[in-house]
Design a protein around this nucleic acid. Structure first.
Lengths: 192, 192, 192, 192
DNA sequence: TAGTAACCGAGACGGTACGTCACGTCTTATC
DNA sequence: GATAAGACGTGACGTACCGTCTCGGTTACTA
């Protein structure tokens, strides 16, 4: 997106690569500037020339890696779209790249730079999913629940499962989660 | 609970207090052993005698502070119980104490000690809520959804809202979330 | 003098000014190439184009500023000439410009360039004072002491007083020093 | 002397040795804290624990090494004592140890710590030589010249010769200098 | 008048040293 | 037996200069 706001020198690519890899392999605490410099074959001062602090580098790296990008699906049904969405979230958080990033963002306590980035990436997020619900409304299958809340419910379940429960996700988790929100909230006996 | 797993000397109280406060005020990164020692009026070596590392101290502190404890409500209805539960989660994450703790736990990447603690606190969590659902079943109001998943949905929405969206929670958020899962998944026209 | 040995571009004046000022105000250690560039409103590379190193720049600056120049007096007597000479040395070392220069030169340990410059400025120095002694010889007032040594004695006393004792010079110091060397070495009772 | 004011840890000896050697071999600019640490087989932080800055370390090193110490001679005559004194100064400045120290002290421009040390070592110096002149007075051979000034003259000549002229000292320099101040100021024809 | 050389600014870089902070370990008192 | 006190090696922080390089743009002379 416009506004990455990263002036970046010629060596930027190598630095981003190194930073991304370190973040993935050793987590946010293992991402030291000096380690990035070593891994990128670059001098420490070169990094500081471009990013004034570790949060700034992390921010730029995350934005550059687009590690959290999601493509909005169009499957023809609300349920299908939601399942596809949740599967993407699941896939990201299960794969090796995005999880450390999300942990770093969720865990950032005293770094305004990362807090702001987190907000940008997650709070504005609903704009992305909006088309799904517009198509659903056009098809007349929109549930009464506020769409934003609906996304929070399904995505939240996945994220909490990974970030806090730290438990493996069952194969059908995405579908289960979506169905739970769309259908199964009906009480037994209401018919199915 | 049993299994804090830490012998604790006489100075433990002061150390826990200092650690809890630092964690709350300065976040996980501001919680340095030396800062805790200073704040507790205790020598650094004393801390290392009891807790071999920073994660160990954090773990003990979190367990000792019971910062994440929740009391299981009994309001007479499933909806009431769930709303009460979510309100407690909301209250915790909104207050000044629990949020940094949860961030620290969610953000822990390379510390097995904290990962394990996180699992203990969140994965085993459903045992706590089980009575709510047993009472609901007794009353015949149990929805088809897997109770565990149901809790993940509502709690996940709250936690993601705080940890990742970093947005304020509306007043009626708890009720909205619960209602979304219990009722509003019905399609419009099904009646309410 | 011929032999500044430095081609000098148009910006040389500004650079010399800045260097001289920095040397005077912040001493030899405060004279960084980058500071000179900033103060002279000139790019760092421009300085490096003309002077390959800091000692080279210092050397050129000192030569250009003529900070240590002395005019040979002719007062009609050896004593008068010597007093005038010493007063000039005193004046220089008391003023703000020359002292840091002399300190830089005296303190230069590992820079052959500055060592050489020091030799040029101080070792060849006697050539300057020679006329004083030739006139004195013509007047028949030349003492037995080697003139060069005589100059070293009086100038040395002043310089040591400033550089090493770091004490203020009394008003009549120049005259006292000269008289000490010319007269007072006689033992008391020898008459005057 | 009392008042070195140097709290010093167990590793102090190795550090002083390394610092002294580096100062002697590479001059004041070659004396970096990290180089001292390397040479002393000690960690950088250990040095900073004890001496807050480079000047402080230099100061302590110089005081500890007693590189400038002089023993007051008693040869039975003022001339003999003075010659012995000057020979000591000469010997020091000619040897490998003291010269870089004196250069460092003379060259110190912006370091109050070293300026103060210089004053301590050189300004208070006359107290050391005083016995020489008291004995001379007792023997009735005290010249009219202020003793302090006399010392400044002879020592100044030597020091300037080394520090600024940077020329080798002739063998008989000490005697010549002393004689110049004691005797040869007489005009030719006065006899010898 | 066109071209070329001298000069300069700008930007980027690897590198060394600075002085600081926290880590985790160890030894030696002291209560 | 628990603690304080002190010292240490280690790694990383973020900063300042160093000296080098490349590139592109002006002047200003000169052919």
């Amino acid at each position: 997106m416009a506004g990455i706001g990263t002036a970046s020198g010629p060596r930027a690519a190598a630095i981003f690569d190194a930073a991304r890899e370190l973040l993935a392999e050793r987590g946010h605490d293992g991402l030291t500037i000096e380690a990035v410099a070593r891994a990128a074959g670059v001098n420490k001062t070169t990094i500081y020339r471009w990013w004034p602090s570790k949060p700034a580098l992390v921010r730029a790296t995350v934005l550059h890696a687009r590690a959290l990008d999601i493509s909005v699906p169009d499957t023809g049904s609300l349920r299908g779209d939601l399942v596809a969405l949740v599967e993407q979230v699941t896939g990201l958080l299960t794969g090796p790249h995005a999880e450390p990033v999300v942990r770093a963002l969720a865990g950032a306590s005293g770094q305004p730079e990362l807090a702001e980035l987190t907000r940008e990436l997650f709070a504005g997020g609903f704009a992305r999913e909006q088309p799904v619900f517009e198509r659903a409304r056009a098809r007349g299958e929109l549930p009464a629940t506020d769409p934003q809340l609906l996304v929070d419910l399904v995505a939240g379940a996945v994220r909490v499962r990974v970030l806090l429960r730290r438990q493996p996700l069952p194969d059908r988790f995405a579908a289960d989660v979506v169905d739970a929100v769309l259908h199964s909230a009906r009480y037994p006996g209401e018919g199915e």
